[in-house]
Design a protein around this nucleic acid. Sequence first.
DNA 1: TACATCTTACTACATTTGTAGAAATTGTCA
DNA 2: TGACAATTTCTACAAATGTAGTAAGATGTA
Lengths: 125, 125
Amino acid sequence: MKLSQAEWQIMNALWDEHPATARQIAARLPEQVNWAYTTIKTMLTRLVEKQAVRERKQGNASLYDPILSRRQARSSALKSLVNQAFDGAFGPLMHFLFEQQDLTAKERTQIIQILQEHNNPKRNR
Amino acid sequence: MKLSQAEWQIMNALWDEHPATARQIAARLPEQVNWAYTTIKTMLTRLVEKQAVRERKQGNASLYDPILSRRQARSSALKSLVNQAFDGAFGPLMHFLFEQQDLTAKERTQIIQILQEHNNPKRNR
DNA sequence: TACATCTTACTACATTTGTAGAAATTGTCA
DNA sequence: TGACAATTTCTACAAATGTAGTAAGATGTA
């Protein structure tokens, strides 16, 4: 399942807490995203058509739940990036991450830290 | 600079070796990509307009060179993925990479290996 | 009950993307 | 020099995407 940028915004809001009404989703979008309410509804309708989201009527209004999980969406976005831009393998992606000159120090630290977390168990066992 | 999927195909072929003619690029595209020659030309024209590629006439034909570097393109694609899908931080991306259940053993090994490469210098110094 | 609201359902429209054909131009070889 | 072949230029067009307006139905409320 491929989500567009705008769809990611909606899904991110929905994953954070659901079910949610369109109104609630609107409230959770990042500041910069200043969509008309009907824009959000349009996106939701399209997501329902794509079966990324389930809609159920609650009185006159609708409640939405994700069908597509964040994990699934992340996984396919990542795979598609890797295929498109990193020769289809995670290796080149990892290399790239490490060679990145324009990572901030903070990002760098973050990464190293995670690596250690995930690396240490191996050595400690 | 944001490249579309099709544009990545062209750019990948061009980065591999340049300058290149449209014909050469065509020859380097992956098997599955079976575009008409004019499709490739259209993409190239658009990439020139976007200033991702430079075109120079060599007799009747054109030679193309990338202006946008692979590194730059990768960097912005990665950043945009991270923003869109990983809360804007590399940390969550790294975590995700490690928790991924559906990585193949090979991919897993690849990653660990890279990590070690980049981790060891720190300890060995 | 009659209005002010909210929500949905439909429609709209510009831009970007994927894909390519047709026509014009240029180079080439017999 | 004429016929072909290769290349470029233009034009086209459908699908996807971003963004939103309008009409009509449901609801709360004075």
